[in-house]
Computed example of a mutant assay.
Amino acid sequence: MKEVIKRDGSIVKFDKNRIVRAISMAFTQNKKDIKTDLIEKISIQIENIDSEKMSVEEIQDLVVKKLMASSEKDIALSYQEFRTIKTELRKKEQVIYKKIGELIDASNSDMLNENANKDGKTISVQRDLLAGISSKDYYTNRILPKYLKEAHESGRIHIHDLDYLLFRETNCELVNIENMLTNGCNIGNAKMLEPNSVDVAVGHIVQIIASVSSNTYGGCSIPYLDRALVPYIVKSFRKHFSRGLKYVDRLDKESIKAILESTSINFSNKSLEKKYPSAFAYATDMTEESVKQAMQGLEYEINSLSTVNGQTPFTTVGIGTETSWEGRLVQKYIFTTRMEGFGAKKE
């Protein structure tokens, strides 16, 4: 025999050493002494077959038959078992390569548009989908029990988010935003301290949403947003009231300091309105404007964020239980921003 037809249809020159190595490996796996004479005999017999070409599968069939005809039937079984395993691996590889090819093929819109929160035209999304192909295959064939694998593949059940289960990520996070704002939190290498204004607090919230969403799958929920922001709206009111005393009422630095240290500075303290009506009105207007801008910023940021896998975070914001003036401002401008929508309005 002079040539061998490979599985991909290509033709190569016959090399008996490949047979020698394969049978020797079977002896080694069975922890038996390698019988060089037997291996050499089988390889020469196959080499001397009166045929110009044979396929790889035909040659392997001959190896098994000749081993079975010898005293080394266990080696024949081991060789055949290894051959079967390799065949299964090749089949799995073909499936993976096919899926990768479908992903790379830009015409496959179904795969690229399987998730409405992901823009399938971006590199980050396509890279995430590519990683998902291999992680799905590994989880299905190496971790998932056989009966569940068969049920999933036959369509009797559907195992959701198979491309992420391998990494044991959590899903649909309920984020304790109040605790993270009050006590600070670590994001990457940065320590985020408690904010001193509503706009900075909203900036922290956006970063928290982005970080949580990038390290999980599914959505994240921000409960009691209005209640969580009240302390920082109070801080903003205090800052604006201080500026009102300085630039509207024209008080000196020492007088302002004395007022701030001796009086509770917040909207609910109506004595402030009586004593300093101009500064109070200024602080009220500026605080409301700050909350308006912060809520618009939050809405825009949430809808323009992109996680590491290219997904727009699926975010749920909870409001409605807070009845203070500060909390009701948050509710007012969240709804106002939602109702006005994004982009230029059509005439």
Results as ranks from 00 to 15, higher is better:
residue 4 V to W: 00
residue 14 F to T: 04
residue 17 N to H: 12
residue 21 R to W: 09
residue 21 R to H: 13
residue 30 N to E: 15
residue 31 K to T: 07
residue 51 S to K: 15
residue 55 S to H: 08
residue 55 S to P: 09
residue 57 E to N: 14
residue 59 I to F: 04
residue 62 L to Q: 12
residue 64 V to E: 12
residue 65 K to N: 13
residue 77 L to S: 10
residue 81 E to F: 06
residue 90 R to W: 10
residue 94 Q to D: 12
residue 96 I to G: 05
residue 102 E to R: 01
residue 107 S to C: 08
residue 114 E to V: 11
residue 120 G to A: 04
residue 123 I to V: 12
residue 127 R to G: 02
residue 133 I to S: 06
residue 143 I to E: 04
residue 145 P to S: 00
residue 151 A to P: 05
residue 155 G to C: 05
residue 160 H to D: 13
residue 172 C to M: 08
residue 177 I to E: 04
residue 180 M to T: 00
residue 183 N to S: 11
residue 185 C to A: 10
residue 185 C to E: 09
residue 188 G to A: 04
residue 198 V to R: 02
residue 200 V to P: 09
residue 201 A to L: 02
residue 202 V to M: 01
residue 202 V to G: 00
residue 204 H to G: 05
residue 208 I to N: 03
residue 228 A to F: 03
residue 233 I to E: 04
residue 234 V to A: 11
residue 241 F to Y: 05
residue 244 G to Q: 02
residue 250 R to N: 14
residue 254 E to Y: 07
residue 270 K to S: 13
residue 270 K to C: 08
residue 277 P to F: 01
residue 278 S to D: 14
residue 279 A to G: 10
residue 291 V to S: 00
residue 293 Q to N: 15
residue 296 Q to Y: 07
residue 296 Q to P: 06
residue 303 N to E: 03
residue 306 S to D: 01
residue 317 V to G: 03
residue 324 S to T: 15
residue 325 W to L: 13
residue 325 W to P: 13
residue 329 L to D: 01
residue 330 V to H: 02
residue 334 I to Y: 04
residue 340 E to T: 13
residue 341 G to R: 02
residue 341 G to K: 03
residue 342 F to A: 12
